[in-house]
């Protein structure tokens, strides 16, 4: 399957355009803001020292799915999860279970998670992100 990947982390300028792209695309309604963004760029005490971009690794055995009490975070065969918003009770278990903290809290306290759609890649101005076929 195609996945969101990091092509060159050293080129990240910290613009957060990926986050805004995700919120425009990922929500049922395109939103203005970053509430529903499933991706987060953070710096190492300032982007001049380098960046870390956090998003779902598309695990084969996603811990987030295992701790979800309602089946809202269901594991996909090819890795990663599908989020069923209507089933979610906003307990926050998934966010705690993710080892790399790649599940984010929306304004309504439900989770925001990357579904590897690749939309953000179009808006990464410096080629940091890529969307590629990855062997499972």
């Amino acid at each position: 399957m195609k996945r969101l990947v990091i092509k060159d982390i050293e080129k990240c300028v910290g613009c957060s355009l990926c986050m805004y792209a995700c919120a425009r695309k990922n929500a049922h309604k395109p939103e203005i803001g970053i509430s529903s963004s499933g991706i987060l760029a953070i710096s190492l005490s300032g982007f001049e020292r380098g960046a870390t971009i956090i998003f779902c690794r598309a695990c084969r055995e996603p811990p987030c799915s295992e701790v979800c009490p309602t089946g809202a975070m269901s594991a996909r065969k090819e890795g990663g999860v599908t989020f069923h918003e209507d089933l979610c009770i906003a307990c926050g278990n998934c966010m705690k279970a993710c080892t790399i903290e790649a599940i984010f809290m929306r304004e309504d306290e439900k989770p925001a998670v990357c579904i590897h759609c690749g939309y953000c890649v179009e808006f990464c101005p410096h080629g940091v992100l890529g969307f590629e076929e990855v062997k499972a």
Partner: peptide, 17 residues
């Protein structure tokens, strides 16, 4: 903060963006 709001015209918003 992570507050959000929605545009009045969703399709057009994405296009103009």
């Amino acid at each position: 903060g992570r507050k959000r709001y929605t545009p009045a015209d969703r399709k057009k918003y994405r296009e103009v963006y």
